[in-house]
Design a protein around this nucleic acid. Structure first.
Lengths: 175, 175
DNA sequence: ATGTGCATGTAACTGGTTACATGATTCG
DNA sequence: CGAATCATGTAACCAGTTACATGCACAT
């Protein structure tokens, strides 16, 4: 892809990962070239600036694998996990499942923490804190559900089955 | 609260908002003092550094109101919303409901975007992209459910009803 | 005619992290 | 006996944003 393409495709997910500005993207691409993790093919356009198509190299792919290999900190953010998900195309399925399970453990920890603080100090906690905690708690539980569902799905249906929607999961709340 | 207290209480929510380091927190507190948005009361400890208890002033409260008043960008992140939620104690309930409804509109937009891109390019999309989109889609739907539930709860049960858990919402998935 | 999309990039600034310094107390 | 918690702060560094520069094509 070109720098512009990368930006555009990331911009669609701005609400999950905040996407980079051109001011940070292009320097990084140069860094990748210098490090031999990517190559460019320049496709000149007559009028506008030439498109520069970047491709990942074997070394680059290895670097991604390595990055994905080392565990996330316990503070694992939604953002980081989404990026790992986004790069899932590079990995073997087993590693993908590892990622999901790792995330599952993290989110479980977050949820448990939220539960504990919620029913520990329920009375003297102000509305804001309580709302934020319950918000986080609910999202955690939803995420756990998705993770479990997706892990199972990947484990059973080995072939990616292109064209089939991976999941259509209505969320139901009973209060 | 003291700077340390602020840090500690935010650290419990690191997975939602990433909490500040002391290197950024303390300078900000000085800024608040200079701006007249907060005051300090120094409680000296014999041995350790003295505790500095910060309190928000009327001007500070007004500044928060003003901040909450201006709408979030359409790219509204989970982080920003959580912070708004955390500050909910400062606001009248009507404003809180406004915030939730605003967030509801944003998340609806995100969800719709995800749906569109998912069933637009379903075939030629790689696993990573699809997973990330479905992940986001599912979380969006969960969040919408929570928002609706909470809005209704705040609208009907006017008195905060301290001591009652605001919500115990099991998430259910049917795949 | 004006703005949006394409498509690249650079310079200045800024906000934040990292790493340090200090030092008593309590827990395992 | 070492690690973590309490509790504050500073200086150096770095990653990222903001704002700019360029300029054609196409739509409103």
């Amino acid at each position: 892809m070109s720098g512009y393409d990368i930006q555009r495709s990331l911009k669609r997910l701005t609400w999950l990962i905040s996407s980079p500005s051109s001011g940070s993207l292009y320097p990084v691409l140069y860094g990748l070239l210098e490090g031999g993790l990517a190559t460019v093919e320049v496709v000149p356009n007559l009028d506008r600036p030439p498109r520069k198509i970047y491709s990942i190299t074997a070394a680059g792919r290895k670097a991604v694998q390595h990055w994905a290999g080392q565990p996330t900190g316990p503070d694992g953010s939604l953002r980081e996990f989404t990026m790992r998900l986004l790069l899932a195309g590079c990995w073997p399925k087993s590693r993908l499942i590892d990622q999901l399970e790792q995330r599952h453990r993290q989110v479980t920890a977050h949820r448990d923490g939220a539960i504990k603080t919620l029913d520990a100090a329920d009375v003297e906690m102000d509305l804001g804190q309580r709302l934020a905690l319950e918000y986080g708690l609910f999202l955690s539980e939803a995420e756990l559900a998705w993770l479990e569902h997706t892990i199972e799905m990947l484990a059973t249906a080995s072939p990616p089955e292109k064209g089939s929607k991976l999941a259509a999961l209505p969320v139901q709340v009973d209060g």
